[in-house]
Design a protein around this nucleic acid. Structure first.
Length: 783
DNA sequence: TCATCGCACATTTTT
DNA sequence: TGTGCGATGA
């Protein structure tokens, strides 16, 4: 599958008939708005397509490809089209295909950065000291390798965890830095040994004939920079370059693109600076902000007409994103006029929030809100951090609401899958040491650390692979008897399986089954008594099924190293729960955005680590979240949350203050503060509208009064709530030193006042900041 | 070599 | 609260 096939990639494909197109109009261009049309038709020179959320970016991009082909500007194999994910690549392929019917043979150079790099690198591997059949390590292998190196250097793994080193190295690779280029400023990294270990790691990889993900790009960039004649060949070949999600590119990817575009200069980058949310893994918003300087004479096209959301939703999103300084500046608009305001709800705690959202979803799917029934599939809950999902899962399980969690550990990352693949890897190529290490003692064969070290030693001493080393040891008898026997069995197994693979007489699916069976791996899970056992067996079956479409095991392994996704769409209608990151690019009629509390969202860590830059990225995340919604968007926050078994109280997110109040409907949670604010107290809203439509409307006295008022009116939940919120006088009447009571934290003394927020030293729970309305004077508690 | 205990720790994730 | 890792003992 990944075989680099010259004829595929470079030989002229069947030319498209120019007459055939000339005769007809351009039906594939129908339905484009003027901006999209410009983006499609501006073929010469650099183009930056700034495409806001829901503005038909993929449509413009795919139509542009169709246009290039139909006008005869380029053959399918002369277009380089790059995406980040396999999913995006697949979608693009399909959409180009359907635009043009069956007229175009596949585009060999449409793919992810990584898959395209593999293709190039296999062809020039020797230039960076690799063989063209190099293997690709995933993060797991990478960490294990680094661990070995860290240990070999006698570094305290507690203080200097290998993962940290992995992060550093990834960071360097993202910035296209080889060990010799690591800036002096980074010299102190990892106990002053970072650079050396990086170098050692690269040497080790070369010895293993392996690459990590970062290397795929780095090596190609290095080759391009060092061997102009190689670069030139590609530069000349790719007449047109298209890049999706340009705001997510890192330095290495940027360099890669610049080098390739330097000849024809026909590069079209599509992206949205406001949706750059991957800075933490090396993405440089700067790339898109700098585009016009980097590519002089660039045409910039802004796609601003939004086809997804209602005006209120767009306005709310704009209000939030306007808080960012560094933007190219777009304003989404729509010609729609109808629609609900964004709804804002505060809750007492996370559980309450989950309950409320569960109820709301239930109402929506039954059509109780006087609206049409909405299928659960059309609804999504988008959270900042995955631990927030639990509350919803728990709740939905109890009320029997079908849900699906998107993201989480992917299929090919699961332990049993990786183990099974390690078996395949060793069977296919006996010298895959990392894979051998992984499974030599799985299932348990009495070959522990000690024995593995001996094997390793023996292998190095003879300059052979681990498997060969093990073979020598077995023949010499250099291991405990028990280990010797099991190891021999395993080695015989690999002999047998490798022969089967080489002979190619039996179907590879059968071979795979045989390997898993004879190695004892399937039995290992069959006899496993943990609750996961059956599921893992199930996954193994899935894995074997996934082998079917491939020619052989080898083809499967090559392909799979770059595809770590889980494609099992079950068609039952379910509510989706996912992180905001995972939601990028998706859309739902109904979106819930829970957990908008300072510290959770924006995340404390992000703010601590990168300061203002971090807040801005979090703000973009908020923008991404809101713009996922087509018709209904509900933002909520909880005053208290159980985090790591500890109650923490928090303040509503600063992003809530940034929502323009005229596009927000403030609701009180049913049951908590009494409910029905919107129905019974229209005054609150007009009050807020008359206020300067600015950020702190929610901190304003009006907001507080409103909260207090609805609280007083409330019936409340019998136990929890009645005495939490007290009236407006109390809100403003606390003074330093006052003794107060808080429902979850108990008694405490006010030690600081900051607007409507109090800093309170609780007797049991420590010092916390709380909204004044959530505490009451200690004497007022109506028990 | 393997099982158990105790401790530190705790975003976001694609390839 | 819970997990995952490393140190500890059988």
């Amino acid at each position: 599958m990944n075989d680099w096939n010259e004829s595929d990639a470079f030989e002229a494909a069947v030319p498209l008939s120019r007459q055939a197109m000339g005769a007809r109009a351009t039906p594939y261009m129908e339905g484009l708005n003027p901006a999209q049309r410009t983006a499609v038709e501006t073929l010469d020179g650099p183009v930056l397509m700034l495409a806001g959320a829901g503005t038909g970016k993929t449509k413009a991009l795919t139509t542009r490809i169709a246009h290039l082909l139909m006008t005869g500007r380029a053959q399918p194999n002369e277009i380089l089209a790059v995406t980040f994910t396999n999913k995006a690549a697949r979608e693009m392929k399909n959409r180009v295909g359907s635009l043009l019917g069956e007229m175009v043979e596949g585009m060999p150079w449409l793919g992810t950065f990584h898959s395209l790099c593999v293709k190039i690198l296999r062809h020039h591997a020797e230039l960076v000291g690799l063989k063209s059949n190099f293997t690709i390590l995933d993060t797991d292998d990478q960490i294990r390798l680094l661990k070995q190196l860290v240990r070999a250097d006698h570094i305290d793994e507690k203080r200097w965890p290998p993962r940290l080193l992995a992060g550093l190295i990834d960071g360097w690779k993202n910035r296209a830095l080889t060990p010799e280029n690591v800036p002096a400023a980074d010299a102190s990294a990892f106990n002053h040994k970072g650079t050396d270990l990086y170098e050692a790691y690269q040497m080790r990889l070369r010895a293993l004939n392996a690459c990590d993900f970062g290397d795929l790009l780095l090596h190609v960039v290095v080759i391009f920079q060092k061997y102009p004649e190689v670069l030139q060949k590609y530069q000349r070949w790719f007449r047109y370059i298209l890049v999706d999600e340009y705001q997510d590119t890192n330095v290495a990817q940027y360099l890669w693109l610049r080098l390739l575009a330097a000849d024809h200069k026909n590069i079209c980058c599509v992206g949205d600076d406001d949706q750059s949310i991957y800075g933490w893994r090396g993405a440089e918003v700067g790339n898109i902000l700098r585009f016009e300087q980097d590519f002089p004479g660039a045409t910039v096209v802004k796609l601003e007409q939004n086809y997804r959301s209602t005006p209120h939703i767009l306005a709310a999103a704009s209000g939030v994103i306007n808080g960012n300084e560094n933007r190219l500046g777009k304003t989404l608009w729509t010609d729609r006029t109808e629609g609900e305001k964004v709804r804002l709800i505060g809750h007492w705690d996370g559980e309450e929030e989950a309950r409320s959202i569960g109820e709301e979803i239930d109402n929506l799917q039954r059509g109780t809100r006087g609206l049409d029934k909405i299928s659960p599939e059309s609804m999504a809950i988008l959270v900042r951090a995955s631990h927030q999902m639990r509350a919803f899962e728990d709740r939905f399980l109890t009320i029997g609401l079908p849900y699906r969690v998107i993201g989480g550990p992917r299929f090919y990352e699961r332990m049993e899958i990786r183990d099974a693949m390690a078996y395949f890897r060793v069977a296919v190529s006996n010298d895959d040491g990392l894979a051998f290490e992984r499974i030599v003692n799985t299932p348990k064969r009495g070959i522990g650390d000690k024995a593995q070290q001996t094997i390793n030693l023996k292998a190095r001493e003879h300059g052979v692979s681990m498997l060969e080393g093990a073979r020598i040891l077995v023949s010499e008898g250099g291991l405990p008897k028990r280990a010797l026997g099991t190891l021999k069995t395993l080695l015989d197994g690999f002999d047998r399986w490798s022969t089967l693979i080489r002979d190619d007489k039996i179907n590879h699916v059968e071979i795979a089954q045989q390997i898993l069976e004879e190695s004892g791996y399937t039995d290992h899970w069959r006899t496993d008594k943990t609750p996961e056992g059956p599921g893992r067996l199930e996954n193994l079956k899935e894995l074997v099924k996934a082998l079917e479409p491939f020619e052989n095991l080898q083809g499967f392994l090559e392909h799979i190293s770059l595809i770590m996704e889980n494609e099992q769409e079950d068609q039952t209608e379910k509510v989706s729960i996912m992180t905001l990151h995972a939601a990028k690019g998706l859309e739902f009629p109904v979106v819930f955005l829970p957990g908008w509390e300072d510290g959770l969202f924006p995340s404390q860590r992000s703010m601590d680590e990168t300061g203002l830059k971090g807040v801005e990225e979090e703000r973009r995340l908020a923008y991404v979240g809101i713009t996922r919604a087509e018709a209904h968007c509900t933002i909520s926050f909880a005053a208290n949350r159980l985090i790591f078994g500890q109650w923490q109280s928090s303040l509503p997110s600063r992003f809530i203050d940034e929502l323009p109040s005229e596009h927000v409907e403030v609701l009180t949670p049913p049951g908590l503060y009494g409910g029905g604010y919107g129905a019974a107290a229209p005054s609150g809203e007009s009050e807020m509208d008359s206020r300067v439509a600015r950020a702190d409307a929610y901190n304003s006295p009006g907001w507080k009064r409103m909260q207090a008022r609805s609280a007083r009116r409330g019936v409340g939940k019998p136990t929890e709530v009645k005495n939490i919120v007290i009236d407006a006088q109390a809100v403003s009447s606390f003074g330093l030193g006052d003794r107060v009571f808080h429902q979850k934290f108990g008694y405490g003394a006010v030690i600081g006042i900051e607007g409507d927020k109090l800093e309170i030293a609780f007797e049991k729970a420590g010092t916390k900041k709380v909204i004044a309305s959530f505490v009451s004077g200690a004497s007022e508690i109506p028990f």
